[in-house]
Design a protein around this nucleic acid. Structure first.
Lengths: 133, 133
DNA sequence: CAGCATCCAGCTTGATACTG
DNA sequence: CAGTATCAAGCTGGATGCTG
């Protein structure tokens, strides 16, 4: 459309992650944060219970998973389905919006995992050229 | 392929972000971290100098931008081109690998910016149902 | 301009203990 | 099981000052 496609074709949307105070920046941080992205990807295969998620995401603490799920639920990306049974059973699943986000994330993650050898090689090269510090 | 497409079709790659100690996890954190993603996206339109980047990414400090660029350079996503002039001039640009990553990121960012109204609406709903805390 | 070194406030995080 | 509450520790990141 724009022949002079310079470096920054501005969006039509009134939101920009480049602006410090834009809510899109905070939202991006929720979904790309330390646990947000992993949580979304973990839920891609279907709904999971709290402790299933916890086991799946190696290293996440109870507290952080809880916090992360609350954020994602608030942003409308995850649905929380609590059954009032005893013992309690709570299932988490993606909303349609969450699923779309997770797909983008999955694409990124898959790509990255597929190119890790390149990354590792680059690191070795980088570290070697300055091994003497 | 697999008719019982359960929740986790394992990758063919030996890397998984779900494992705490996998280098792919750390790399993912570099590119989705607070400044990594923004830096990669900012460089999508072409090379930029240090202070150009700093101005473009609202809120980043000198220190964090410097640190971020080093990480991205080490991971082989960004190229640093320093001209030995006075005053010094250093240009940063994406490597082919970095460009591919940036494209994934851009897709995510664009999608999210385009759906921010939904996110904001979801937040309002969430907050309202528990306004009395 | 393009950084590095240092300092340190405060936010994030992980452990632990507790509740329904 | 599915969390919440609390607390200490450590890392993040901003401010400042300096270098080439």
């Amino acid at each position: 459309m724009d022949s002079t496609q310079e470096r920054t074709e501005e969006q039509n949307y009134p939101y920009s992650v480049f602006a410090k105070a834009c809510p899109s920046r905070a939202t991006l941080e929720h979904i790309t944060g330390r646990w947000g992205g992993l949580t979304l990807c973990a839920l891609q295969g279907g709904s999971l219970r709290f402790n299933e998620l916890r086991r799946r995401i190696d290293g996440v603490s109870e507290k952080m998973l809880s916090q992360t799920l609350h954020q994602l639920e608030r942003d409308g990306l995850v649905l929380r389905d609590a059954q009032p049974t005893n013992p309690p059973r709570v299932d988490y699943e993606l909303t349609p919006l969450g699923r779309a986000v997770a797909e983008h994330l999955k694409g990124l993650v898959d790509f990255m995992e597929s190119r890790m050898d390149d990354v590792l090689a680059a690191r070795t090269r980088y570290d070697e050229t300055r091994d003497g510090r």
